[in-house]
């Protein structure tokens, strides 16, 4: 940006071009960001790496705008906690082959997802291995 300012004399034309450019960049960023978002952003999650954990489902909520699984999971230190796993919207999930009966209380599962940045037992579910050996996608 600084370089551009040095190279261009601020004639009205380049100011105009810069404005158009700025609008295009912002629009592009918004559209790009929008594709990552479902109902709300993923900013709360650490998207740089996934964690994998095993445990038992305590609750499955087939609800808009995001389905939720609660499960007692063991982390890498061996500590067990009740985790909240956030999934995509019901429309997305049904396209991935989910129904309200895909997961039920008591199921032994292996989950993979993006942890909440604040360190709470909360993650954006990427995939889940079901007791029948099937692996399901959890979010877009």
């Amino acid at each position: 940006m600084k370089l551009m300012r040095c190279l261009h004399r601020p004639s009205s034309r380049t100011v105009m071009n810069r404005k158009v450019g700025a609008v295009l960049v912002v629009t592009g960023l918004l559209l790009g960001a929008a594709s990552l978002w479902a109902h709300h952003g993923n900013a709360a999650f650490d998207m740089t790496n996934t964690v994998r954990m095993q445990g038992t489902v305590t609750d499955f909520q087939w609800v808009n705008p995001h389905a939720l699984i609660h499960a007692d999971l063991k982390d890498e230190k061996g500590k067990v906690a009740n985790w909240k796993l956030e999934l995509g919207s019901l429309g997305m999930l049904s396209r991935f082959g989910w129904s309200r009966n895909t997961v039920k209380r008591g199921d032994r599962v292996t989950v993979e997802g993006f942890r909440a940045k604040d360190g709470s037992p909360y993650m954006c579910l990427v995939s889940i291995d079901l007791p029948n050996g099937q692996s399901m996608r959890g979010s877009p």
Partner: peptide
């Protein structure tokens, strides 16, 4: 809450 299309 549970409909595939009502919420959107």
């Amino acid at each position: 809450r549970e409909s595939l299309w009502l919420f959107p």
